[in-house]
Write a protein that binds this DNA or RNA. Structure first.
Lengths: 147, 147
DNA sequence: TGAAAACAAAGCGAAATACTCGGATTAATC
DNA sequence: GATTAATCCGAGTATTTCGCTTTGTTTTCA
């Protein structure tokens, strides 16, 4: 019951892109080094994110990736669903003897509620918010260090 | 990002116990048959639930399991945490270069929020509620069938 | 005493996860 | 144009986790 590394790597990489202020694309190798992620693996993930329309690739020399949309318009839910698949927590065994009939299965509602709660939690966080929080925390840390 | 079968089997078995009205213990083999679960595997899970204090075992012939507490006092969150482990969705790589320092990691908050949302969702459902919903749905289904 | 149940620990095959590798494509630069 | 630097793509692989079985022990009722 953990998110796979795909999701967490992906989110971190997307955060990296959001924090990367320059207009030039950010290349996988750089992201991987700065955020300590396996480069070739991250490459795969970036391709998935591109196919999902979350990032845009710039091919060839001096290429890399940029966010396909403003960071304000990208939620963690999107990123995670692309890399993790739908967040269904359990499939009620349709036709199996879970409780005779799918429509009498009280559990289906429970799993659905949980899915909604989880999805909602991730939908409320945009990349922009995350980047801001990150910046704030870093500033705080620097301040404490100075004292 | 699914719950393991352990959790779902466990929840179903616990629901079985809640629905099992007779005062005699309900044995694993019966539960397994009625709810179509692998018997020997379920045996393991029941042992875990017992160690966690959710069920009481009656050993020897004519033994089996009964709920250790009234169904109204057992939440799905308890059952799931026993069988699934804590619902932490990701561990922020402490010390690793996630974002320099753990305390500057904005992501930790996100994962923690998600965990809370999920846990809360499961905490709100007791076995008693589940049993009631189940009974209602069954009654509805029977009614529709009669019509 | 024998049968029936929970208990315990180990083992095991299949599937998923987390990668790596080799080469093909694309594009900027010399 | 050649070179180089990047993404793209498909296949391959090692490791872990999952789901379940097996074997045997202990407990208790009849």
């Amino acid at each position: 019951m953990k998110l796979s590394t795909r999701s967490t790597y992906g989110v971190r990489a997307m955060l990296a892109l959001a924090l990367h202020q320059r207009p030039t694309p950010f290349m996988v190798k750089e992201i991987a080094e700065q955020y300590d992620l396996p480069a070739t693996y991250l490459e795969q993930l970036m391709t998935l994110l591109r196919k999902a329309g979350l990032v845009t690739a710039v091919r060839g020399a001096h290429g890399g990736y940029i966010l396909a949309r403003p960071a304000v318009e990208i939620t963690l839910a999107e990123i995670i669903e692309v890399l993790e698949g739908p967040l269904r927590l359990a499939d009620c065994p349709a036709g199996a003897a879970c409780c005779g009939h799918p429509d009498t299965c009280a559990l289906a509602d429970v799993w659905e509620d949980a899915r909604r709660a989880l999805t909602n939690s991730f939908q409320q966080v945009t990349l922009a918010q995350l980047a801001e929080r990150h910046a704030n925390k870093q500033a705080d840390a620097a301040l404490n260090y100075a004292i």
